[in-house]
Amino acid sequence: MNCRQALPLLESLVDNELPEAETARLKSHINDCNHCRQGYQETIHLREILSRNRVMDPGPQYWTETTSLILARTTELADKAQVHHLPQKTRHYGQVTIIRSIMSVVASITILCIALLIGSSLKKQNVVHYVKNAPLLATTDLRDLLQVKDHPIYTAQDQINLARGALLLGMPGSLGRFAGLSDLFLTIDLK
C-alpha cells in the first residue's frame, strides 16, 4: 500500500469501518510512513478532543420542569385542536338552529292563526249572543234607552251584562262606546 491509497482510508480506520484485511495492510503502512502516521494520529487526537467535548447536564430539576412545560404546551395544543374542530360542529348546530327557527316561526304563525280563528269565532259567538240579547250597542242609543228606565227590552241587568261582555271580550271601541260607563252603572238601578 502506498500513501495515495492510504490517505483516503485513514479516517475510515479511525472510525473502525474497514474490513480486517484492509485494516492490517493500512496499519502496516502507517508503521512505516511518517506522513500517514501523523495524519492518523492527528485524526485520533481530534476525535478524542471532540468526544470529550460533551455538554453539561443541566440536572434533574431542569428536566422535570422542562418536561412539565412541554407537556403543558402540548396539552394546550390538544385543547386548541379540539376547539378547532368546533366550527364543524357549530356548522352542524347552525343547520339545526335554522331548521329549529323555521319550525318555531311556522309554529308561531300556526298558533297565531288558530288564536285568531278562535278569537274571531269567540267574538262572533259573543257578539252574536249579545247582539241577540242587546242589538243596540251604541252608547248614545244606550243612554237614550237608559233614560227610559222601564224600557221593555233592556232590563238593567241586560245593560250591565252587555257592558261587561263588551269589556271582557275587548271588543274594538268598547271603551269608547261605553265611555260613560261609570255614569251608566250609576244610573242603572241595580235592583
Partner: peptide
C-alpha cells in the same frame, strides 16, 4: 458552565486526570 442549573458534567474524562491535564482538556 457555572450558570447552568445544577450542572453535572456528563462526561468529564472517564479516566483520572491531573489538574494540569484537566486544564489542558
Amino acid at each position: 458552565s457555572s450558570s447552568l442549573p445544577g450542572t453535572v458534567q456528563l462526561d468529564l474524562a472517564r479516566r483520572v486526570v491531573t489538574p494540569s491535564q484537566k486544564f489542558e482538556s
